[in-house]
């Protein structure tokens, strides 16, 4: 039952190691298969986690768009510093 191998917050950061830009929806979709049952894998909580990582200098905002519904979608990429932190500590 327990396929999780690491905490959700670590898994989120590790997703970005490939250098691709992701929005909140992208992160939630990619982690859904492994962390689908996790109570904190939702757009609101993941948004907060990504914004916090950005505020702490691990992720950069690469671009932003407003979709048809008027919702702001921010795409994040990992920077050198964030990459270093993930490699070193996770």
């Amino acid at each position: 039952m327990n396929k999780k191998i690491e905490p959700l917050s670590y898994a989120i950061m590790k997703l970005f190691r490939d250098g691709k830009a992701r929005s909140v929806a992208g992160v939630v979709n990619e982690l859904e298969p492994l962390y689908g049952g996790h109570r904190l894998l939702n757009e609101k909580d993941v948004d907060e986690a990504l914004a916090t990582a950005k505020e702490n200098g691990l992720l950069d905002e690469s671009r932003a768009e407003v979709d048809e519904g008027g919702t702001l979608r921010i795409f994040y990429t990992i920077n050198d510093y964030g990459q270093g932190m993930v490699e070193k500590y996770l």
């Binding site: 690491e6 905490p7 959700l8 996790h38 109570r39 996770l90």
Partner: peptide, 13 residues
């Protein structure tokens, strides 16, 4: 919050 497994794993990291 359903974080008990996360807590145990984080402790060891």
């Amino acid at each position: 919050n359903g974080q008990l497994a996360d807590l145990a794993m984080t402790f060891r990291s």
